[in-house]
Computed example of a mutant assay.
Amino acid sequence: MNRREFIKACSLMAAAGLLFGCRKIPFVGETPSAPSLKRFQDEVKLALSKAKESLNLVRVNAPGPLKVAGASLVNRFGMAIDLDACDGCGKCILACNLENNVPLVTDEEAADGRFMHWIEPHGAAPFMCAHCEDAPCEKVCPTGAANHTPDGVSAMMYKRCAGSRFCGANCPMHARKFNFNDAQKMGLAHQFNSQVPLREKGVMEKCSLCLHRLQDDRARFKTEAALLPNGGEWLGRGVKTACAEACPRGAIVFGNWLDEKSPLVEATRNRQLYAPKELAAFGPSVVYMMGKR
């Protein structure tokens, strides 16, 4: 039992003593049934109907090598969203929710427009964590739970998260979501993907650029490269995020900004690139494209 689990167990015992006789306390292992796929689909439709204001976009340059200690010289993963192709259908949101086991929220929270979705609709554009090079969220995390991988992914270590919410407050776009609910016990969580853990109450979460897919591909590449005399460098070629894979119009392109053969570099080569004004100065790895250069 780690520190978080011990504190949680003590808190539950104390709460049970205070509330005994007033309400039913679930036994260990007793949880409501997992919600259906339709509930997740309906929640995405509701989120689309409550879309936030359109993004305030400004021109940016294509991301280059990370200027941070320990950064990879060959990898910087990110995405570009083609606003000339995107029609705001929301399929990317649902795909992300299922791939990453993003929990539902209560009816009251949904009515207020607060969802746990890692991708949010802003006007007709999808918005997610931009995986900034100089990420303001990571600077204020007191435990190191919010951290940067050498490949440019702004990642989360959930077991380290103390739930301070400093990272969420310091993100200009508030891309991180705080788990106010014990989604599993409330019947708001469904583990569609066994590769991604269900998160606990009291932690922050956000887009991970489907880091588990990148990790799987890296492991596969290393295994295959070990059998060859010159295995080469892993560049993440062929990996797609769930949102990019689900987009029927090919409006979301994932790839490696430092690989000239990456579909991301090829798709953005002659396009004008943009980022939300609030994030442009922090070197985002997720950008938007419109028009031609």
Score class of each variant (00 low, 15 high):
residue 280 A to K: 04
residue 122 H to P: 00
residue 113 G to L: 05
residue 134 D to W: 05
residue 62 A to D: 06
residue 183 A to C: 13
residue 279 L to V: 07
residue 124 A to G: 03
residue 184 Q to A: 12
residue 224 E to A: 13
residue 202 G to T: 09
residue 215 Q to K: 14
residue 27 F to R: 15
residue 280 A to F: 04
residue 244 A to W: 00
residue 258 L to S: 02
residue 245 E to H: 07
residue 66 L to W: 00
residue 186 M to R: 13
residue 78 G to M: 00
residue 248 P to L: 11
residue 28 V to Q: 14
residue 233 E to W: 12
residue 49 S to A: 14
residue 114 R to L: 12
residue 107 D to G: 13
residue 146 A to T: 04
residue 246 A to H: 02
residue 278 E to S: 10
residue 104 L to R: 01
residue 218 R to E: 14
residue 118 W to Y: 09
residue 153 V to D: 09
residue 149 T to V: 10
residue 100 N to S: 05
residue 183 A to I: 07
residue 233 E to M: 13
residue 89 C to F: 04
residue 176 R to A: 06
residue 276 P to C: 08
residue 59 R to V: 10
residue 141 C to N: 04
residue 273 L to W: 11
residue 172 P to F: 08
residue 15 A to Y: 03
residue 285 S to C: 12
residue 281 A to C: 06
residue 247 C to V: 07
residue 187 G to W: 07
residue 200 E to L: 02
residue 87 D to Q: 13
residue 25 I to S: 08
residue 235 L to N: 00
residue 43 E to F: 04
residue 91 K to W: 02
residue 73 L to A: 10
residue 162 A to C: 11
residue 12 L to E: 15
residue 55 L to K: 07
residue 139 K to W: 01
residue 231 G to L: 08
residue 95 A to L: 03
residue 203 V to Q: 12
residue 163 G to T: 11
residue 13 M to S: 15
residue 6 F to M: 13
residue 212 H to T: 09
residue 149 T to F: 12
residue 281 A to R: 13
residue 100 N to T: 03
residue 40 F to M: 07
residue 110 A to F: 07
residue 82 D to F: 02
residue 110 A to Q: 09
residue 34 A to P: 07
residue 259 D to N: 10
residue 234 W to T: 07
residue 205 E to C: 00
residue 122 H to K: 06
residue 150 P to L: 10
residue 227 L to H: 04
residue 43 E to L: 13
residue 35 P to K: 02
residue 269 R to N: 09
residue 84 D to F: 00
residue 209 L to N: 00
residue 60 V to L: 12
residue 288 Y to L: 09
residue 203 V to F: 06
residue 287 V to A: 08
residue 6 F to Y: 14
residue 186 M to E: 14
